[in-house]
């Protein structure tokens, strides 16, 4: 099939404009246009696992809602597995799985197992497939003792695992995950990540992962897309984020005695001085070697180390809200 080729998820100049009403007086209302997604274009090939990150209100959820067909785009072209989601929502529904971290897709008052049984019938999953998939999910996600428990009585971690299982039972080609690890304990987080890795590797499921937890991205995704104010501001390897984010690495030097802040080193600037120890910041894209050489020439060095930038800081800086 052609869709298996380059672009499995495909967005071209997609916009989503909302009209927001704000009450300005007792009866007066102000109308304002908000461009939640503003000319977004990207493609994701089949079988890739991509991190999709950005600050709150950047347009992540709106994008996912358009990709699932919940929302219709205001303009632009959008295809998932060759299907236009907003026009053929129910046909697409059989091919995608969705997990919302903050909201369950399970039936709140029914036992977990009943929810799964209902999913099976709704998605018309063949018996053999269903049993294999259920067995695998129960094992991977450790759901054995939970099938009889009503969903509302499950803990957050248990419920999330149940939600992920429900999204995988029909062998979706694409899995959208919106904050799948939010509020989970360390063990549950690890379990969720392991399952995602397995599903991606063994089934070739395409995964789009939205998260605030950068460890998720570091452990799962080779590629990251960053969205801000409805626009794609970065698309590439996680490592490359540093360069784009104009981030800095840190040279931590221990001198033999106290010196005034080192200001005469080209390409580096002092950010902190603590007795004989000084912190020098330099652009992440630049090599540390010439700096160290220049430094050793002019100052008595006792020890030194290079610190990689914190990914959270990088992201924060990209959003312009660096501390």
């Amino acid at each position: 099939m052609r869709e298996d080729q380059a672009a499995f998820i495909e967005l071209h100049e997609v916009c989503k404009v909302f009209e927001v009403h704000r009450r300005t007086g007792l009866l007066r209302r102000e109308r304002r246009e908000v461009r939640a997604v503003d000319g977004l274009s990207f493609t994701v090939p089949r079988g890739e696992m991509v991190g999709y990150i950005g600050p709150n209100g950047a347009g992540k959820s709106t994008t996912v809602k358009m990709l699932t067909g919940i929302l219709t785009p205001s303009s632009g072209r959008l295809r998932v597995a060759g299907i236009d989601p907003s026009r053929e929502r129910t046909r697409l529904a059989r091919r995608i799985g969705v997990v919302f971290g903050q909201r369950t897709t399970l039936w709140w008052d029914l036992p977990l197992g009943d929810s799964f049984a209902l999913v099976r019938r709704m998605y018309r999953i063949p018996d053999a497939r269903y049993h294999v998939n259920l067995e695998r999910c129960v094992q991977l996600l450790d759901l054995g003792g939970l099938l009889e428990v009503p969903v509302r009585q499950l803990s957050l971690g248990q419920r999330m695992r149940g939600d992920i299982a429900a999204a995988l039972l029909h062998d979706p080609d694409v899995l959208y995950l919106d904050e799948p690890t939010i509020g989970l304990d360390v063990v549950s987080k690890a379990k969720v990540r392991e399952v995602l890795r397995k599903v991606n590797a063994e089934q070739g499921t395409t995964v789009l992962l939205t998260t605030h937890d950068l460890t998720d991205i570091e452990q799962l995704c080779k590629r990251v897309m960053v969205i801000d104010q409805g626009r794609l501001v970065y698309d590439g390897a996680l490592a490359g984020l540093h360069a784009v984010g104009e981030s800095e690495r840190m040279l931590v030097v221990d001198l033999e005695r106290e010196f005034p802040p080192i200001e005469d080193l080209p390409g580096a600037r002092p950010v902190r001085v603590e007795g004989p120890r000084q912190w020098l910041a330099f652009p992440a894209g630049q090599s540390a070697a010439p700096l160290v050489a220049a430094l050793a020439e002019r100052y008595p060095l006792a020890d030194l180390s290079v610190r990689e930038p914190d990914i959270e800081q990088v992201i924060a800086r990209m959003y312009g809200s660096a501390p």
Binding site: T90, R94, F100, D109
Partner: peptide, 22 residues
Amino acid sequence: DGSFDILLLRPVPVLAQAAADR
């Protein structure tokens, strides 16, 4: 409460789901 979106994700017409729920 936002749970309406969930109905739109399933391969069953929304009205049928909304009417049958509970």
